Simulated scan of single mutants.
Amino acid sequence: MSSAARTDAGPSTDDLDEEARGIVEGLYGDGIVALKSAFSVEWVDRLNADVLAAFHDARQREGGAVSRGPERWYVEVHPEELSGFVDLVTHPWVTKVCETVLGPDYQIVEIGFDIPFAGAKDQPWHRDFPSPPETYEQHRLTSLAFNVTTVDTTKDMGPFNIALGTQFESGLEFDHQQFPDRSEWPRYAAASVYKTPQRGDVSARSALTIHRGTANRSELARPVVVLGVDAPGAGHDALHDLMVTRAYHDSLPEDLRRHLHARVVDELVPIVQRHDIEGLVMG
């Protein structure tokens, strides 16, 4: 994006086309945007099978899956473990969101998935990491999280609950700069909406927008793939350890290789996760 004058509402949209303008207005307004039916149901079902296999493997090793509350787990994976990785990160809408909001040199720093199983509880309201000064002082977003549900979400499956327009609160007084005081929870609840995406939908949000996973009262798991993308210098790569084999790296489109912030290795090793959100462990 150009270095046009910024306002409290975010970057100038004067020179953007209609789609890009909607992306900026959504992410700088509500804090979340989405595209319905970006992928086929068959594509999502393959992704779901990969996710479940990766979860089974992760649970066999220490540090492979981290708790995000009762009956809720987060797992980071190697890109080549997900058959749809390239399709996701090269989807025209995904790349347009990244380029429009994070600039042409955006960096893919994380791929993983969250699974709330039957019995998962309401999480406390939170953001995924402390807000940087670029966001709470300059009103500039420097990172995004894309979500892809692998099942059709219903209201009893613990849908994602997001407090719209909260991404620019400084959070300096929050516990760990991530968890607002319980006295503020009614305010976030009043500003919130529940998201029930269906197979094929993809969303993009600021992970600084206050949100929570909710109680899964169904008997079904609700896996969601998470793709993390940074503007240059945002620094969230330090929380993750993307790696790809040389053969896989060489098979990727050249433009994708430019954006993929990953170690190139001869052999993949199990991921020991670095991004453990302590305040969610007990839910």
Rank of each mutant, 00 (worst) to 15 (best):
T154D: 15
F168M: 11
H176I: 06
L208S: 08
M157W: 01
G213A: 08
S206D: 14
M157P: 00
D156S: 13
F168R: 10
Q167E: 12
D201Y: 03
P180F: 05
H176M: 09
P197M: 09
T166E: 06
N161M: 15
D152A: 04
K155N: 12
R217F: 06
F160D: 00
P186I: 02
E219G: 04
L164W: 10
A204Y: 14
L220S: 07
G213M: 04
F160A: 03
Q178H: 12
K155R: 15
L164N: 12
P197I: 11
P223C: 02
V193K: 13
D175F: 05
P223T: 02
R212S: 06
G165I: 01
Q177Y: 11
A221K: 02
F179T: 01
E173N: 11
S203Y: 02
T154W: 11
D175Q: 10
A204G: 11
R212N: 06
D175I: 05
E169H: 08
T166C: 10
A190L: 03
L164C: 09
F179K: 01
S183F: 09
F174N: 00
S206M: 08
E169D: 14
V202P: 02
G165S: 03
S170H: 13
G200Y: 04
D201G: 05
E173G: 10
S170Y: 06
S206E: 12
E169L: 13
R217I: 05
R182Q: 04
R187Q: 15
S206P: 08
T154F: 13
D201V: 06
R217S: 07
D156H: 09
D175T: 09
R187A: 14
T154A: 13
K155S: 13
A163H: 00
E219L: 02
A191K: 15
S203Q: 05
S192Y: 15
F168N: 09
G171N: 01
M157S: 02
V202I: 15
D175A: 09
S218Q: 05
Q167L: 13
R217H: 08
A190N: 08
V151G: 06
D152N: 14
I162M: 14
